[in-house]
Design a binder for these strands. Structure first.
Length: 491
RNA sequence: CGGGGUAUAGCGCAGUCCGGUUAGCGCACCUGGUUUGGGACCAGGGGGUCGUAGGUUCGAAUCCUACUACCCCGACCA
């Protein structure tokens, strides 16, 4: 499966690419920048979806669906929004093909030109707010708490599997509120949901904060984000939640009558996470032996591999194995019993190890005699022999401790790679060395942020919420600063 | 989008410079047998319009042109 697998040390980005492809998560496709998500990768995404969807519903949201296409004119209604997305839009100009005159293939029918071009959505604020205009008349119609699961297209120059693809899958929440305070509360609530999901389910510690104006979403008043730290010391933005103020309501003329019978514009938020989370998941935990998945998101949590010399042995082992399968399933644990005789045990060990299955059980004749099973955990690669009595609860606990261990490991890594820095030289040295999050003072200007980016490729990942107030001097300009911000090189 | 590289069987590669029998190799695949507690072995077998489209030539994987995809570096990137 993966005999010649590049190590992280050798070439981190090659390691990542090989991992995604060889673990059968996704493949490149015939279409530039677009990937095929394979069943195993999609199964992980489905788990992510299910959990998040429950969390959204738990917090009062409903799912809906809006069109893939957006009339071009919609984009120009919100000035900074169009500016942010104009350079990466796919545009539909025609609606028909015809046989080419030379009879070889088809051409775009020039007579089928659209009156107004359609944009393939890079995000849905505009089409949704156009719809909200007709949904909202009164404060009684508010709040509107909608989420949609969709694909979007952003024509990026350079793509990487899961991390930045031309088409990607995501969810986008779009809410409408009667008051500013309520919209801000929603924005903060949802970044909290994302942080909780990242930490509890993905076992990925994240920093929570707000973006500098430079990094803010096009059209937002404030952008909240969660940022994870990958094993190569680069940050990855894993989710964003935007307070949109009244920008889109004004652009799409969405007004409502308040209790006081006053006409006012509606307050908005939008928030999203994408298949990029897959990239975050992969890069946070995986190692030189392949994928490592946190049990809570692993499509297969436990695999059972029989070790046998003949049919008779297999029959006996299967009896025991199927008993374990039943007990594990009763506890809600997803388990696969791989009794194929087309592959040898060693081959299977490597296969499931590479695919990140958290726990592997091996049962052979020796175990039948002793009433035991061999248990191997993917996170530490440790093996142990368990008595088969009450095996399902032992495994259940093991899965929990693997989940915790992965989080702790990632957390320790982040702590080791988060540094406070007060001088420019230290700042540059860290970035050129191990990287990581760097907490430093910044004078608050976009010009300074830009200069730092030009010189070091590092950007402000976030400004901590309720961060400690302290007097300091900007790392670059020496001008006064009241709070540290988090810098890093990022994906 | 700029610079560089790559494209030959499912995967990884050789052959291309210097055009000329039937395009090879490893892994994978199929059949039979022996095997099975960390990627088995032996024997036999199948699979390729050499990325796509043109061009040069008696003859093109090989030379020329265009296009497409992927990789690396840059620019870009809620």
């Amino acid at each position: 499966m993966a005999k010649d697998f590049t190590t992280r040390e050798e070439n981190y980005s090659q390691w990542y690419n090989e991992l995604v492809i060889k673990a059968e998560l996704a493949d490149n496709s015939a279409v530039r920048g677009c990937m095929v998500i394979k069943p195993y990768g999609y199964a992980i995404w489905e788990k992510i979806q299910r959990v998040l969807d429950d969390m959204f519903k738990e917090t009062g949201h409903q799912n809906a669906y809006f069109p893939l296409f957006i009339p071009k004119s919609f984009f120009s209604k919100e000035a900074s929004h169009v500016e942010g997305f104009a350079k990466e839009c796919a545009v539909v100009t025609h609606y028909r093909l015809k046989l080419s005159p030379d009879g070889k293939g088809v051409i775009v029918d020039p007579d089928a030109k659209l009156e107004e071009e359609l944009i393939v959505r890079p995000t849905s604020e505009t089409i949704i707010w156009d719809a909200y205009r007709t949904w909202i008349q009164s404060y009684r119609d508010l709040p509107i708490l909608i989420n949609q699961w969709a694909n979007v297209v952003r024509w990026e120059m350079r793509t990487r599997l899961f991390l930045r693809t031309t088409e990607f899958l995501w969810q986008e929440g779009h809410t409408a509120h009667a008051t500013e305070a309520e919209a801000v509360e929603e924005t903060e609530k949802m970044i909290g949901v994302y942080a909780e999901f990242a930490e509890k389910w993905m076992a990925m510690p994240v920093l929570k904060g707000i973006k500098s104006p430079n990094e803010r979403f096009a059209g937002a008043v404030e952008t909240y984000c969660i940022e994870g730290l990958m094993q190569d010391g680069k940050a990855l933005q894993a989710g964003t939640s935007h307070f949109l103020g009244q920008n889109f309501a004004k652009a799409f003329d969405v007004q409502f009558l308040s209790k006081e019978n006053k006409l006012d514009y509606v307050w908005a938020t939008s928030w999203g996470v994408s298949t990029r989370l897959m990239g975050a998941l992969i890069m946070t935990h995986s190692d030189d032996h392949g994928l490592v998945l946190p049990p809570k998101l692993a499509p297969i949590q436990v695999v059972i591999i029989p070790i046998f010399r003949n049919e008779e042995q297999l029959t006996q082992i299967s009896e025991t194995a199927n008993g374990i399968v039943k007990k594990l399933k009763a506890l809600g644990i997803s388990v696969k019993y791989d009794d194929r005789d087309t592959q040898k045990p060693g081959w299977k060990f490597n296969e499931y190890e590479f695919k990140g299955v958290p726990v592997r059980l091996a049962i052979g004749p020796r175990d039948l005699e002793n009433g035991t099973v061999e248990v191997a955990r993917r996170d530490t690669l440790e093996k142990a022999v368990y008595q088969i009595t009450d095996i399902e609860h032992k495994i259940s606990h093991l899965l929990e401790s693997i989940q915790e261990n992965l989080y702790q490991k990632a957390y320790d890594f982040r702590e080791e790679n988060t540094n406070c820095v007060d001088t420019w030289d230290e700042f540059v040295a860290l970035l050129d060395g191990k990287g990581g999050f760097i907490s430093a003072h910044w004078d608050g200007t976009t010009e300074t942020e830009q200069r730092i980016k030009d010189e070091t490729k590092a950007t402000i990942r976030l400004i901590p919420i309720n961060g400690k107030q302290e007097e300091g001097k900007c790392i670059l300009t020496g001008k006064p600063s009241k709070q540290r911000v988090i810098f890093a090189r990022s994906y």
